[in-house]
Design a protein around this nucleic acid. Structure first.
Lengths: 201, 201
DNA sequence: TTACTCATTGACTTTATACTCATTATATTT
DNA sequence: AAATATAATGAGTATAAAGTCAATGAGTAA
């Protein structure tokens, strides 16, 4: 019944290869795109045979799902670290930007290609968004209660903000042809948005 | 030297087929997606042979470009009709929504897949955006001068608005699983946005 | 030490789809 | 009316990329 029994060298090796494939795929996806990266590219970059990819993931889609879930776990953890306390909305949004900036390349690919991914992958992305939404909504409600920002429907508060950020990310080739959109425009977008929703009283 | 010489039956026929292909492709793209619609699908829907597609367009990409340009011409014309006069920003944005609504399915595909298209197609899309931007920016500047909306950098005025609209379009499966996002949310988004930028004085 | 298990390999198979081209039928020209 | 040009056809070709599987060899258990 027990699974205890310390891992054999083989199990360790297999787990390692799997992790290595996810990590390599993550980098390749960020670099070349989620739908355009070929399984053979990933195998090559990971320095394993093409067949090994399919020994670990039954299909390309399964690999993509594993990578997105891994990403979701990382980004959620990071956002939680950055935004647990009862911070101001401005602080939470700043944390949002900071958290995304750490994974900007991959996140941008998700924004650009999200709607073209298999449903399972898209669902994983939506769940990540929900986690983000939760933090932002909470902070926004506190401030509306306090009167420091005007009362708006929460979903519009969130969607306007995310729409703005995604628009810049999705057009990163125009806004920041080389380098990071969030580094270049993050602060400006945050200031602008805070000014928009600031209390008019 | 002259090209005058009234068109022969053959030329008429060829022009017709070409137009018919563009029209059919436009519908198919709107329905099935720009990158996922196959040339064979278009041929079938247009009730011509697969070969005919390539008799009129040297490559798939050339057909896509022709369709986007046709779309650009139509939407620009329509926006011009709707927004030429010195209207308020609210009127211009309403015209923007109305113009887009008439082509919502295709426009949404452009938003969703824009970054995955060949450069020439993406450029055509960017040019359309510029035409839109022009109208909106003009109206916004007038109102900022008049003091009816607060002074913001023009590009942020435009990008926040378009980001919001694109966010709803890009997630139309969540916001309006069946039917039109713009019909369902257009007015709400417009009101929300106008309230955000309204003069705080 | 020997028999067995299994992670890895890479050549091969399969599938999808853009694109070609010899042929056909019809319009145009002489 | 005969000769020619060309729009349309659709079976065929080329290519790319996912996925398969028998062979290999190193780790594990007896």
């Amino acid at each position: 019944m027990s699974k205890k029994q310390s891992k054999t060298q083989r199990q360790v090796q297999k787990d390692q290869t799997r992790k290595h494939l996810i990590e390599t795929a993550f980098e390749q996806f960020a670099q070349k795109g989620l739908t355009t990266t070929r399984t053979a590219d990933i195998a090559k970059a990971a320095k394993v045979s093409h067949g090994t990819v399919f020994a670990h993931f039954s299909t390309q889609e399964a690999l993509l799902n594993a990578v997105i879930e891994e990403f979701g776990a990382r980004v959620s953890l990071r956002l939680h670290e950055l935004a647990v306390r009862n911070n101001s909305l401005q602080d939470v949004l700043a944390a949002h930007l900071k958290g995304l900036a750490e994974f900007e390349a991959f996140y941008t690919r998700l924004v650009i290609e999200g709607r073209l991914l298999p449903e399972s992958a898209r669902n994983a992305f939506i769940i990540i968004q929900s986690a983000i939404s939760f933090h932002i909504s909470q902070a926004a409600e506190r401030e509306m209660q306090a009167g420091t920002i005007d009362p708006y429907p929460i979903h519009l508060i969130f969607n306007t903000w995310v729409g703005l950020i995604h628009y810049y990310l999705a057009n990163n080739d125009l806004f920041a042809p080389e380098g990071s959109v969030l580094e270049r425009y993050g602060q400006e977008l945050l200031d602008h948005y805070m000014r928009l929703i600031a209390s008019k009283v």
